[in-house]
Amino acid sequence: MSRDRRQLLLMLTPYLVGLVVLVLLPAAATMAMAFTETDLIAGSRLVGWDNFVELTGDPAVRAAVGNSLSYLAVSVPLRLVLAVGLALLLHRRARAVGTARAAVLLPGAVPELAYGLLWLWLLNPIQGPVNQLLMLGGQGGRTMFGSLPPQWLTDPEDARAGIVLMSLFTIGETFVIVLTARLALPPEAYELAELEGAHAGQVLRRVTLPLLAPVLTVLVVRDTLLSLQASFVPTLVVTNGGPPPYATTYLSLVLYQDAFEYLRYGYAAAVAALMLALTAVAVLIQWRLLRRWASRGLVGGQARLPGN
């Protein structure tokens, strides 16, 4: 082993130790626990595949898988579009841009629990500001668009929409990454397009997005990994999985309830294994799609940033 590699390993050691002790070992223990019945009070008992068999018939898990996947399918793209849109809007120097950037970042800085409680108030069907706003100019208890106001916490569809809505404001991190990536793009690329007389749409489609593609790819995968868990606090605090039976019950909530409310740690570990598998499948699908697109030159899978 060369000196460089030894040094590299030495520098990595603290991280690797942390990774093994704090992540990999607990993860392995969890996977092992999935084959037991464990309540942490009495000893645990090996049950083989029983937990996984029960998973397949558990209505909460079934509903949660559907909910989690639909959340993934709606929230991840919307969050990305919003973050990219705002980053492109706010990358130029202009008046109040600093304030606007801070405003985009701010919701992400609010502690999750407080953020959830805030939305509980915002989404209050009658007194909440969201519906108050929607009903401005509306008549007879209808919104300004003439429809009935959304019943955020009592209608299944509206509640799911509410959870997605909540997720759309915590895009600060994604926003910062896109913003930084955009600022790092070479001005020549834009001048080149300008010289050819490209209009804004063409610049976006043919210059900005392809150049940002490597970053966006990473962000999509990252957001997918996170979003299965990201739905947890809002559902615990705002909807508690309801409206009943399982309108906003996501896997993270099922896991929490089984483990910490019903003390079924073994079964909850099986739910965790399911979550892990779903995440892996989602990322695998994205990765294959992106690779296919990259090979067709649709996204910059091969692209390098300037200077390389």
Binding site: P125, Q127, Q151
Partner: peptide, 8 residues
């Protein structure tokens, strides 16, 4: 109603 209950 459920909506009223969520409100208060």
């Amino acid at each position: 109603s459920d909506v009223e209950m969520e409100t208060q």
